[in-house]
């Protein structure tokens, strides 16, 4: 029987046509459930992007009280850059520091009038490789840098970083819990809707079993049907998510979110879009499987 997929597909499609209302109900529940999950995923994805942006700010600044001679400065920079945590080292001269400061003051730049350009110290801005932008990575690097005499004055927002990491951890846990809950709720609702469709066809299931259909033969069209309905629900959910995204995130909420420093709010990346459709199919399949256990007993 397995070598007759066309036959199975025909049976599945026929079943759906025979009870269009229940079919629509299954599709709709999957669509609603996945729209919520999709919307939630947009928020998670954007928080992830935002935290990645923020983590780019993680760096160690070494103030140089005495600016070394050019050749030894070069050696120092090369030495620091050789550390495996370090992505790059930028030398900021006194002059550059002054210019940056002036720029930041902009209109109030006249406050600087009469001050020498060298009142700010020169510094080395040491950025970390992405995988080491953690509290632990920073402290390892700082410990290594402290070995060098020239680098006595190090600044590195350790406390901020620890708090930031705790925040990200909390987000991850909350995301996993909420996402898991949503998924479970979706499965529960979808399984119950499919149970209704099976209930409407319990005579058919009984008759199949009575004429000697194997459980697999009975179940396959229903599983296929569940997967198809789920996939359609997933596609609709993608549309629904995009609609909500447009309605709330892109326009409504963007003002709030942009204030936190996010440059723009992204829609779900392609992989996630695919995952929603595939997730719908899986949800429909699993929902059918769960409900069928109650009905197909031989």
């Amino acid at each position: 029987m397995l070598e007759r997929p066309v036959y199975l597909l025909r049976r599945a499609l026929r079943n759906m046509l025979q009870s269009p209302f229940l079919c629509a109900a299954s599709v709709a529940t999957v669509a609603v459930a996945l729209t919520l999950i999709g919307f939630f995923a947009i928020i998670v994805v954007n928080i992830q992007l935002m935290t990645r942006d923020w983590s780019r700010e993680v760096q160690v600044i070494a103030y140089l009280d005495v600016v070394p001679a050019e050749s030894s400065l070069k050696g120092l920079i090369e030495e620091i850059a050789g550390h495996d945590h370090v992505q790059g080292v930028t030398y900021v001269s006194r002059q550059e520091a002054y210019e940056r400061f002036a720029e930041r003051l902009s209109q109030d730049a006249d406050l600087l009038a009469g001050l020498e350009a060298d009142f700010l110290p020169a510094s080395l801005e040491i950025s970390l490789r992405e995988e080491f932008r953690t509290a632990e990575g920073v402290s390892t690097l700082v410990a290594a840098l402290k070995q060098k005499k020239a680098l006595s004055d190090l600044r590195y927002g350790q406390e901020w970083l620890e708090r930031f990491e705790a925040f990200v951890r909390l987000l991850k846990v909350a995301g996993a819990v909420l996402g898991g809950f949503l998924l479970f709720a979706a499965l529960f609702i979808v399984a119950n809707t499919i149970k209704l469709t099976l209930y409407a066809r319990r005579d058919e299931l009984e008759i199949m079993a009575l004429v000697g259909a194997t459980p697999l033969f009975i179940k396959l069209p229903f599983l296929l049907e569940g997967a198809l309905q789920g996939a359609v629900g997933g596609i609709l959910a993608l549309g629904g998510t995009f609609f909500l995204f447009h309605l709330f995130l892109q326009e409504g909420m963007s003002a709030v979110l942009l204030a936190t420093g996010t440059s723009h709010i992204a829609f779900l990346p392609g992989f996630y879009q695919l995952a929603i459709v595939a997730g719908g199919a899986l949800l429909g399949f699993a929902g059918s499987l769960v409900s069928l256990r109650k009905f197909v007993r031989l």
Binding site: I207, A209, L210, V211, G212, A213, P215, L298
Partner: peptide
């Protein structure tokens, strides 16, 4: 075993008071 049950039923014909036909 219940997995063999379908094959037992394939050798049988069963008729009921309420016909049990597929109405559609």
């Amino acid at each position: 075993p219940s997995s063999r049950l379908p094959f037992l039923r394939r050798r049988m014909g069963i008729v009921f008071q309420d016909f049990k036909l597929l109405v559609r």
